[in-house]
């Protein structure tokens, strides 16, 4: 930095010499290891998002079917997937920031979720989730146009290897859609395998630190919304370790803007505890419907908000079955079909 290399012609350039004398550069910054790592994590996460977006654009023509498994429904509306999470944990316990009714129900479902039996999921297995889905079939920018309820199945490879997503599959609309990624795709926020989920902190504050570092706000989105969207992605088509499920619901109590919605129903009309947050940037609202008896996510609903805040449903899901299987494309034995 102090002895920069210039071509001979430059070195004798009076303008350059004068400017260097007049405005000596401040000392170069060497980032601390922590800071560098946080920035790197954020950048690499955003790069992976970009890749996924590219791949989805390239391979999935009809109505963005595959993206919904890993990106949020809201992200479908965004045309750009750039952005970064602010790194940096905060110290000490955070205050409860969700609305009081939501906080109290989240606490209750966390307690129930934490008592669920621990499933056994091998790294060579696949997490299988079968859902009923209603989704928007209108073109981007048009008013939502809901299709009929249809079934969707997903097999997510649990192999933690950088190329371990091979074999992952979505079966929807009578067709198989292999999940293809560019480059490597290690287990992580974009591919939440059971063992990765089990590796997350189970202290709600620490978990939220981690999720904040991983969440990538899209195009001016509030960071809190990006965290909520990330949480949604972690609970929707996954099998959760009970400790993590409990921590995640407790962490949601610490997220500002999280509210309770009464009378919440999933895509097939099952009632549950409704937890939602409004995305002010994209004028939309994502709702979780949680089974109060088991703490499991029953389903989700996504609304667009009209000019006066009137909700227009554009996506709804209902999880019908969760299982762990040995092979992609094979339905679990004894799984009752709807």
């Amino acid at each position: 930095m102090n002895q920069p290399e210039h071509t001979p012609a430059d070195r004798h350039d009076r303008t350059l010499l004068a400017l260097r004398e007049q405005l000596p550069p401040p000392r170069p910054i060497t980032l601390s290891d922590d800071h560098r790592r946080a920035l790197q994590r954020r950048t690499l996460a955003a790069a992976r998002r970009t890749d996924r977006r590219r791949e989805v654009v390239r391979t999935v023509a009809p109505a963005g079917l595959v993206v919904a498994c890993l990106a949020t429904a809201v992200a479908l509306l965004a045309t750009t997937l750039l952005g970064g999470a602010e790194p940096g944990p905060t110290d000490g316990p955070r205050p409860v920031a969700a609305a009081p009714a939501a906080a109290s129900r989240l606490q209750a479902i966390a307690a129930v979720a934490g008592r669920a039996p621990t499933p056994a999921v091998g790294d060579d297995q696949f997490v299988y989730v079968r859902s009923a889905v209603v989704s928007n079939e209108a073109a981007l920018g048009e008013a939502p146009d809901l299709g009929a309820v249809h079934e969707r199945e997903i097999w997510l490879a649990q192999d933690p290897d950088a190329h371990g997503s091979r074999g992952s599959l979505i079966r929807e609309d009578g067709q198989d859609w292999p999940i293809v990624t560019v480059g490597s795709d290690p287990a992580g926020a974009r591919r939440p395998t059971y063992s990765w989920l089990a590796s997350l902190p189970t202290d709600p504050d620490r978990l939220l630190d981690e999720l904040e570092a991983l969440a990538v706000p899209v195009d001016g989105q509030e960071p809190e919304q990006a965290v909520f969207d990330l949480m949604t992605g972690l609970v929707r088509e996954t099998v959760l370790p009970p400790d993590l499920a409990a921590a995640l619901y407790r962490a949601a109590r610490l997220v500002p803007g999280v509210v309770l919605e009464r009378g919440a129903e999933d895509a097939v009309g099952r009632r549950g505890v409704g937890i939602s947050r409004t995305d002010e940037r994209f004028r939309s609202r994502t709702l979780w419907v949680v089974d109060p008896g088991t703490g499991e996510l029953l389903g989700t609903r996504d609304h667009l908000l009209g000019p006066d805040g009137e909700p227009m449903l554009f996506h709804a899901t209902a999880v019908l079955e969760r299982a762990v299987v040995d092979e992609p494309g094979r339905e679990p034995a004894g799984g009752g079909r709807a």
């Binding site: 952005g83 602010e86 940096g88 944990p89 899209v218 195009d219």
Partner: peptide, 21 residues
Amino acid sequence: RRLGFLARRPGPGVVEDFADE
């Protein structure tokens, strides 16, 4: 605004963490 995320501020913890720098 076009870059969106640039408008956001870091949390208070960030500065403390990197106080050495």
